[in-house]
């Protein structure tokens, strides 16, 4: 063990002793006035990633990245695909209960795309910009419909282009197109395609408008 160590040290000393006078000579003869050139040893091993060196930054970055990603995907899904909303109010009774009914909204029908007479739609209220409302479509552009409730004034109107006429199922309790006029189709956000009643604990489809939707005439329903 002692032998190789000794020989190494001896060799080093020998080289140093021999080379030092020559190097001193050479330096003296080739002295330059400029800045001394320094050559750094190349770093062969890469440094660890910056985020791995600071664990708290790393954790924050990961949480932030996935949090933003999750929030964005949730927003896009709820805005352009489907959403589940709790409805409230008497205006769509008895199709939708005054409270405790969840509605499944399909955003494929936003801006009135493929909406037909008899569908239940969700739209931004034309008077109160922060409110969303759910009503039934009774007329699309070009259609002719009663301006007020049946059996009142009897006045008809033709719906202008780009508008529709919405009326709640519960006529005396609903504030709808009878109050604010034809609804711009651009305010339509979704169609109600299903509901979950928490009182009955069951799903039912409203894709074709439910029981109050447009149906072929049945004389049994005509009591007059």
């Amino acid at each position: 063990m002692a032998m190789p160590v000794f020989s190494l040290v001896a060799r080093r000393l020998a080289i140093h002793r021999i080379s030092s006078p020559f190097t001193a000579l050479r330096r003296a003869s080739t002295k330059q006035s400029g800045p001394k050139l320094q050559i750094k040893k190349a770093i062969t091993e890469p440094a660890p990633p910056l985020l791995a060196r600071y664990p708290y930054v790393y954790i924050f970055y990961r949480v932030f990245k996935y949090g933003v990603g999750f929030a964005l995907s949730l927003h896009i899904f709820a805005e352009y695909f489907f959403s589940l909303n709790l409805g409230q109010g008497m205006s769509m009774s008895p199709t939708l209960n005054a409270s405790g009914d969840w509605m499944l909204l399909s955003k494929r029908y936003r801006r009135g795309r493929d909406v037909a007479v008899g569908d239940i739609i969700s739209f931004k209220h034309p008077v109160d910009q922060y409110t969303y409302s759910v009503k039934r479509v009774v007329a699309m552009p070009g259609d002719i419909v009663l301006r007020d409730s049946p059996d009142t004034s009897g006045q008809l109107i033709q719906i202008p282009e780009g508008h529709c006429y919405v009326v709640g199922d519960n006529l005396p309790w609903s504030r709808d197109s009878r109050m604010f006029g034809p609804l711009p189709l651009g305010l339509v956000k979704a169609k109600v395609i299903g509901k979950f009643s928490t009182s009955e604990m069951k799903w039912s489809s409203l894709r074709d408008g439910g029981d109050g939707g447009m149906r072929p005439y049945n004389p049994d329903n005509d009591v007059d």
Binding site: P94, L171, D211, M214, P216
Partner: peptide, 12 residues
């Protein structure tokens, strides 16, 4: 044209 119906309500 085809005759259709829609049943709405007066609830209270």
């Amino acid at each position: 044209c085809e005759l259709m119906q829609m049943i709405q309500h007066r609830c209270d």
